[in-house]
Each structure stands twice: as C-alpha cells, then as structure tokens.
Amino acid sequence: MSSEALLSVRDLRVAFGPVEAVRGLSFDVRAREVFALVGESGAGKSLTARALLGMVPRGATTGGRVRLRGSADLAAERGRRITLVPQDALSALSPVHPVGDQLAAAVRSVRRLSRGQARARAVAALDRVGIPDAARRARAYPHEYSGGMRQRAVIAMATVNEPDVVVADEPTTALDEERREQVLRVLAEQREAVGAALVLVTHDLEVVREHADRVLVMYAGRAAEVGPSGHVLGRPRAPYTAGLLASLPQDGPRRHRLPALPGTPPAPDALGPGCAFAPRCPLATAPCRDHEPEARTVDGRLVACHHADDLSDPLREFV
C-alpha cells in the first residue's frame, strides 16, 4: 500500500494546548484517486485538511508525519504540488485584484514565466473551468462574478499549477443541489485534466458515494473506518458508519422513523479512556468503555471497533 502512496499520513495529531482534536490519523492517498474524509462537525476533518497543507491555525501544535512522494519539504510544495480549494470561495479571493491577476500571481509564484505567459495560463485555466469569455472575464473583479463563477475561479486557482494533490475542504457546503453537482463536476474534470489526486473533505455521504474511490470515516479525531467507498458505505463494519448511513432519509414509507443516533459527538476535551463512540453505540460493551480500539483490517478495510469481527451487518443494529 505504502509503495503506491502519493501522500502518506502517519499518526497525525493536531492539538490546542492539552486538548487533541486530531488524535493519531494514518492514511495514504494514491496518485489520481479521489479520497474522501467524511465526518460530522467537530470530527477534525477540516483541521486534518489544513494539516496536510501545513496550514493549521495559530496556537495549534501538530505531531506525526505527512509526506508527499519525492519531496523533503512539504511546506515548500504548497501551492505547487499540493493545493487547497477552500470552503468559502468569496473570502478565498482578494476583492481588490482582478481574478486573472490573482491566478497569474499564483502561476508566477511557482514558475519563472513572463507576465504575459502567466496571464495566458491564467486565462486558459479560467476557460477550462467553463468561465465564458475567459480573456475578458479575467480582468473582472470577484464581486463581478456570480457565486458559481467564483467557485470555479477558486478551482481554477487550485489547479492552474497542475498539482499532484488538490485538497478540497467542504467545497459544496451551503450550495443547493444543482450548484453542488456543478462544482463537483468541475472539480472532477480538472482533477482528470491535470492528473491530480483529490482529497475531498465533506460531511455528505451522498457526495462520497458518488465521487470518492476511497473514504476515511472520521469520528472524534480518529478514523472509525477506512477503505474503498463502495465497500465502506455498502457494507459498513464500524457502528458509527452504520449509524450515520441509517440516519439518512431514503425512499421508503413517508415519515417512517429515522434511526437517529442518540446523543451528540463528544467534545474533544471530554473524552474518556474508551471508544469515543461508545456512549452512542448500541453495541457497546465493557471493553468499549475501557479501551480505545486500534484499527485493524477486517473485510477489506480498516476498522477501529472491538466488535468489528463479530458483526457482519452492524447496519441492522440501527434499523
């Protein structure tokens, strides 16, 4: 597995003072794949995304290791081989510079090109993401773009230098379904065009199902389950994954009771010694409350659950 890893993450930790928000995460991202980090608010997925880029917030300390194949210094690759599509497209663009200038500056920050050459690349990138009349639009300011065009411009910015890895942090949150599909399509096309891997951070299991090759389900700063997304979402082995899937509204008798998970995710400063999911888990037993489970391979994926072996269908426990 590690031989094919493009980006390899080992025992990643992010802490604020004594409180750990990301608690020892390990995974590999392979070249050209779509790898999803999925979880609910507070699970630590955005912090993980930031840590991949060496951009954790001030005051946070990181531990563990993130390596990009063929590179000794990850921070030096930011914007070059690894780039970010941030959540909020408007605040990601400078309001006082034309969009094309911002893209050209991104190009010149990593390549020795003339202004004219950089500009041509910027226009080509805008054209590639479907900005109509890109040469003229490149001279416009972000406020002259519609919301959808801004989102595309930010994707163009993240792909203009043909990176190996694009990290997209909730790129579709707050968008309606049509715009969501549009953005995901543009992201997929650009990833394809430049041959990058995509790390897709999302809370939306439907997005994972439709777009991701592999998925890491995150809960309380750790991986509950990692594996091929068809496998993990089709036949979950971690009770948390199963509970999350069961709580999605789906076709069936109208207003049937949804199997809601009891309680709420724990605060990072209120974790006990056991499995972080145990207080909400219908399968929890004494060992679950005493020892946090280690991840192990079960049925073609990694699962961190004491009961991963005995249960062939945890989904059933919730329905």
């Binding site: 509970g243 949804l258 998970l261």
Partner: peptide, 14 residues
C-alpha cells in the same frame, strides 16, 4: 444539522 442529529429533529417534528 449533521446527519445523525438531523434524523432526531425530523423524528421530533413528525
């Protein structure tokens, strides 16, 4: 709301 919490609120409204 997150999915696991959303289900509970929808059940309540029902």
């Amino acid at each position: 709301l997150d999915a696991s919490v959303r289900a509970g609120v929808l059940n309540l409204l029902s």
